[in-house]
Amino acid sequence: MQAILATLGYVTSPDRRKVLMIRRDTRPDDIHYGYYNGLGGKLEPGEDVVTGMRREIREESGLESLSVELAGTISWPGFGRNGENWFGFLFRVPAWSGTPLAGNDEGSLHWMDIADVLAGKLPMWESDRHFLPLVFADEPRPFHGVMPFADGKAQSWSFS
């Protein structure tokens, strides 16, 4: 399978009760428009996934990632606007320096309660509710999942 390689990171507050999220609210043609999401994006040629995650965090939030922990991986066949396959490396970022920006070209940044995120109180991809409990588990273990998409909706979810 050919796929677009991407990172998705969750910067947590020092007490680990909040997570910095982007509300995609700048471009109405964005497939993520109106949704809250972690920070991240496509890997650049010649870039390893940790370097790519740190770059995306810096570009999108202005923060420097001091600690980056692999939460897991997800294969998203058919996720893209035109049915492209995506493969994501998900990270927790518990240690960082700097002051987050108010927003960027893709949206505004907000510190959100992790409990609210897990309870589904934010507009998000419905499918995120399947894997976010694994990302924010009290005793997290790396997971590797697959979530096929069709017509903009997750069709199933499995992981090991």
Rank of each mutant, 00 (worst) to 15 (best):
M1F: 13
M1C: 10
Q2W: 07
Q2C: 04
Q2Y: 06
A3E: 03
A3Q: 07
I4Q: 02
I4H: 06
L5I: 14
A6V: 06
L8N: 11
G9S: 15
V11R: 01
V11H: 01
V11A: 02
T12A: 04
T12K: 02
S13A: 13
R16H: 15
R16A: 14
R16V: 05
R17I: 02
K18N: 08
M21A: 04
I22P: 04
I22M: 07
D25G: 07
D25F: 06
R27S: 13
R27W: 09
P28D: 04
P28W: 00
D30F: 01
D30R: 04
G34R: 11
Y35D: 06
Y36G: 03
G38S: 06
L39H: 07
G40Q: 06
K42V: 15
K42T: 15
E44T: 09
P45Y: 10
P45A: 10
D48S: 12
D48G: 14
V49F: 05
V49Q: 01
T51K: 13
T51A: 14
R54N: 05
E56M: 09
I57S: 00
I57Y: 01
R58K: 14
E59M: 13
E59H: 13
E60H: 10
E60Y: 06
S61A: 10
G62E: 10
L63S: 04
L63E: 03
L63V: 00
S65A: 15
S67C: 12
V68R: 01
E69D: 08
E69R: 00
E69L: 05
G72H: 01
I74F: 12
S75V: 03
W76R: 02
W76M: 12
G78R: 08
F79G: 02
G80H: 07
R81D: 09
N85K: 06
F89I: 00
F89P: 00
L90W: 01
L90Q: 05
F91A: 12
V93Q: 02
V93I: 11
V93K: 00
P94V: 08
G98I: 12
G98N: 10
G98Y: 10
T99Q: 15
T99F: 14
P100A: 13
A102R: 14
G103T: 04
G103A: 11
N104P: 10
N104V: 14
D105M: 13
G107A: 00
S108V: 08
L109N: 04
H110G: 03
H110W: 10
D116N: 11
L118C: 10
K121D: 05
K121S: 08
K121F: 04
L122R: 06
W125A: 12
W125S: 09
S127L: 00
D128L: 03
P133A: 14
L134V: 07
L134M: 14
D138F: 08
E139P: 01
R141M: 11
P142Y: 05
H144E: 11
G145R: 06
V146P: 02
M147C: 11
A150R: 15
A154Y: 10
W157G: 02
W157S: 01
W157T: 01
S158I: 13
S158M: 13
